[in-house]
Computed example of a mutant assay.
Amino acid sequence: MPPSSSRLPRPPETVEHCPVDTALAVIRGRWKGTILWLLSERPMRTSELRRRIPRISERMLIRHLQELVGDGVLDRHDAGTVPPHVTYSVSEYGRTLEPVVRALCSWGGDHLDRHTPAR
């Protein structure tokens, strides 16, 4: 059995606000994990994110970026120029999600390996 420090906290008898659901609500969305993963490398402009995620629609990309900024996970930097030059980066608060994103990435890779037929 793992040491007690690595165990999950014991859930209360009744759950009104589940911390797991709260965390997942912030990163829930078809492309939010991908956006966070890409921006963990370095800040990027909207157009670069769009190129790096070819299957995402412009509307969905903007929506996810706005939600992540609203939750304080991303910072939006507007150069105030015409044409607009907007760059997104992971905020200081968003950096606290990096271990979670790393763990999800690792688990996802293992899951892909497990479920991808050998070639």
Score class of each variant (00 low, 15 high):
83 P>N: 00
15 V>P: 04
82 V>H: 07
85 H>Q: 11
92 E>N: 05
91 S>C: 00
110 D>P: 01
14 T>I: 13
21 D>Y: 06
100 V>P: 09
83 P>A: 00
65 L>V: 03
46 T>L: 09
35 I>G: 12
12 P>A: 10
98 E>A: 15
117 P>G: 05
29 G>I: 03
68 L>T: 08
26 V>G: 08
38 L>I: 13
69 V>I: 01
81 T>Y: 02
14 T>F: 07
93 Y>I: 14
73 V>N: 09
84 P>G: 00
33 G>I: 07
117 P>K: 02
52 R>I: 07
52 R>M: 14
75 D>G: 02
60 M>Q: 15
66 Q>I: 06
28 R>T: 10
100 V>N: 08
25 A>R: 12
37 W>M: 14
96 T>W: 05
81 T>E: 08
24 L>K: 05
114 R>T: 01
91 S>M: 00
45 R>T: 03
38 L>Q: 14
8 L>W: 03
39 L>W: 04
103 A>Y: 04
12 P>Y: 01
61 L>I: 07
18 C>S: 14
35 I>H: 12
91 S>Q: 01
3 P>N: 07
80 G>H: 01
49 L>W: 05
104 L>H: 05
59 R>H: 15
87 T>C: 06
117 P>C: 00
56 I>E: 11
6 S>G: 05
42 R>C: 09
44 M>S: 11
30 R>Q: 14
46 T>D: 12
1 M>Q: 09
109 G>Q: 07
119 R>M: 06
5 S>Q: 10
41 E>G: 13
111 H>G: 00
110 D>R: 06
89 S>D: 04
58 E>A: 09
98 E>Y: 10
114 R>H: 06
23 A>Q: 07
24 L>R: 10
112 L>M: 06
57 S>E: 09
119 R>T: 08
61 L>T: 11
53 I>T: 13
63 R>D: 14
12 P>F: 00
104 L>Y: 06
60 M>T: 15
86 V>K: 02
116 T>K: 02
23 A>Y: 03
13 E>K: 10
4 S>L: 04
20 V>Y: 03
21 D>Q: 11
90 V>G: 07
24 L>N: 12
74 L>R: 04
10 R>I: 11
81 T>Q: 07
22 T>K: 11
9 P>Q: 04
114 R>N: 04
6 S>Y: 09
26 V>A: 08
67 E>Y: 03
105 C>T: 14
6 S>I: 13
43 P>Y: 00
110 D>G: 10
90 V>K: 00
73 V>F: 04
98 E>L: 15
52 R>S: 15
105 C>V: 12
113 D>T: 04
115 H>F: 06
20 V>F: 02
106 S>H: 11
59 R>S: 15
17 H>A: 12
110 D>M: 03
79 A>H: 02
80 G>E: 01
80 G>K: 01
68 L>M: 10
44 M>I: 06
59 R>A: 15
